[in-house]
Design a protein around this nucleic acid. Structure first.
Lengths: 214, 214
DNA sequence: AGCCAAGTGTTCAACATTGAACACCAAGTC
DNA sequence: GACTTGGTGTTCAATGTTGAACACTTGGCT
């Protein structure tokens, strides 16, 4: 959680599925194959959720569901503001060797409004251009560096340009209305075997228990 | 240190400069601009060094240099074996979203013999090809996934091909004898303002103190 | 000589991460 | 009805990370 990407991911995933418990989140994240890239193991989900709750970004409800106690989380108004802040920061973070925050933000793009996404991506593009220019400027003093470091710089340049090209295309499509973002009608539906789909019943029950408890 | 890249980096940097103290390492890593990519802050250098010493991969010498106590580290035989293991693992780790281990291994390439570097890079290439094939195979079932996730997959594909192309080139050059690797005559010299150069005197003194103490 | 600023070298308490292990339930199976 | 198997939901002690702060030295300035 030192890195903000776990905060962002948990906060966003709770917003997608709330009210939701830790195990449901874990199942959903596994099904996205997020375990592959973000490094979420059971422990960090639970400790991350409780940290976010302590900070007032999530609210924890200790419900009794049948004979069983469950810790169910919902987002708070300040948590949703925090999500926007984190999302913006992540989408603008240009670091070739830590691409996780950016990819996490991309995965959670549908939680942001179109104008914010366009603005965030534009800002990222500007930063990438700065990076590329800096890199080109340093090209001249490459004799001061061992040859294998120069090979690394070449790779960075290549990866940078690849991302830039892709980003220009994405930006164009988002600006032209592609994808379904926050506040827009949702037509895309997950396949039936998606656990996020299957847990709809439990989440409904949680919502009722929370409402009754107020 | 959960991630192995800090272990690899510290072990390798000690091998480059031993005998060396924590502050000298920090200075050197800063001058490489390693702070930018690996996330080494003062604390993790010292705790990493002491962990490596506890495990028998480094030896710690508490020297008295002038009026001052200094903790100076040297590598052990088992530490050098551990370095080779970690290096191989890092160079073969294909994970688009955690490229740090690979780039750390690249930076430390001169500590490995040419045959090992060639073998490691070949093995990486094979793994990248597997990844790319898997990705292409999943292309068919892309309707089961929200559209923005497909855009992410496109980026991954692009980054993967960019790295592959670069890797083929690098492999060719290493196989053809480019770069100066372990056990080969060193002709390249760091510029005079490099701290690694400047600390030569202190390291000489440390070496004598250690020798006397045996 | 006294004082400040910058450099050197390290520690440590607060905090986060890890993943194995726990406790429980439901649904078989013999 | 005892007994395993697999899923659900969570905790916790061990370990690692963080970066501010400490303690000391050196060199310059008045």
């Amino acid at each position: 959680m030192a890195a903000t990407e776990t905060r962002l991911l948990l906060l966003g995933t709770v917003m997608l599925f709330e009210p939701v418990n830790g195990y449901q989140l874990r199942r959903e994240l596994l099904s996205w194959q997020v375990e592959d890239w973000a490094h979420v193991n059971p422990g960090s989900i639970y400790s991350g959720l409780s940290t976010l709750a302590r900070q007032g970004n999530l609210e924890r409800h200790d419900l009794v569901d049948g004979s069983r106690e469950v810790a169910v989380y919902t987002s708070t108004a300040s948590g949703r503001r925090e999500f926007e802040r984190l999302w913006r920061a992540a989408v603008e973070s240009v670091d070739l060797l830590s691409p996780l925050p950016f990819h996490t933000a991309l995965a959670l793009m549908p939680l942001m409004a179109r104008a914010d996404v366009v603005q965030g991506l534009r800002s990222r593009l500007a930063r990438i251009d700065v990076r590329i220019r800096e890199q080109l400027a340093q090209e001249s003093q490459l004799e001061t560096v061992p040859p294998h470091v120069r090979a690394m710089a070449d790779l960075w340049m290549g990866l940078g340009s690849t991302e830039r090209e892709w980003l220009v295309d994405l930006l164009g499509r988002v600006a032209a209305g592609a994808f379904e973002l926050r506040g827009e009608p949702m037509t895309w539906q997950p396949p039936a075997q998606d656990p996020g789909w299957q847990m709809a019943g439990e989440r409904q029950r949680y919502a009722e228990l929370i409402a009754r408890h107020r």
